[in-house]
Design a protein around this nucleic acid. Structure first.
Lengths: 84, 84, 84, 84
DNA sequence: CTGCCATTTTACCGGC
DNA sequence: GCCGGTAAAATGGCAG
């Protein structure tokens, strides 16, 4: 990356700008999320509880994924043992 | 929010699921960003420095100067050498 | 924090050094952890599986904590409803 | 590692628990660190800048200069103004 | 030496 | 408007 004037600088600029665009999209979605929370709140729901429910659903999901990953590991470990 | 069987529970479920969908979209975009960084890295760019550049592009100049001044102050207080 | 020569600089130095000492302790413990893994590995255990087991035990624990926190939230939410 | 009933399972449990205990100690120290930061903050220090100072004290000067040079290079490639 | 995972740091959001 | 805590990003470390 010492070719400041040439293709490399152009490539760098391209990467930077792609990332900036993606980050903008992400920020837009984050704004949507905030809107949903705000709407829920205005309809009487407790945002704090909603967040906790979401976290718990995510934990449950992660937990299940981990269990499956662990099972896979064990299977492979046993599979390797068998093949020895 | 104690009307468990009625419209309220349904509404809550709807909010929760809307948010979960939005969060998934966000995660997908975050994955795209990681891909771009990975591609840049494989083309010889320094990811850490790219991140710094992106951060600087977000900061307006005043904030930057302020922070730098404060950092200098602390360094002087500790008798740390100037990083010139 | 503009009193560079006085008590404030001394206080800053004290905080910095306390943190540095604590960080060293933490690093020492992290080294111990690595040692245990190494010993386990040398006795034929699969480190990757061990890590997954530990993660899972932690997730279970976190999950339970979250459930309790959620229950508390609900209790408080209902308690508030009653007091209205 | 398939001798579930024998000494091996016991050994595994022992390793797991040793690690869990060490991780708890580490977490306790991390909590202490957070306390120190909180105390510093309550006495008017800027925590973010303190972290920067600690990081700088860890870095030797050469690394710092190298990084700064690379950052400058990238900035020039992107036509960003020097932060002088 | 590369990719992955944990830890640490930063930024955000809601509550007071 | 600030503070506290919670979620996201980023850096650093380890295993393969």
């Amino acid at each position: 990356m010492t070719d400041v004037g040439g293709i490399t600088a152009e490539q760098l600029r391209s990467y930077i700008e792609r990332i900036e665009r993606l980050e903008e999209e992400k920020a837009a979605i984050a704004a949507d999320v905030r809107e949903v929370y705000a709407e829920a709140k205005s309809n009487g729901f407790d945002v704090k509880i909603m967040r906790q429910v979401l976290r718990l659903r995510k934990l449950d999901h992660d937990d299940r994924s981990e269990q499956e990953a662990l099972l896979d590991l064990y299977k492979r470990a046993l599979g390797m043992a068998e093949s020895i």
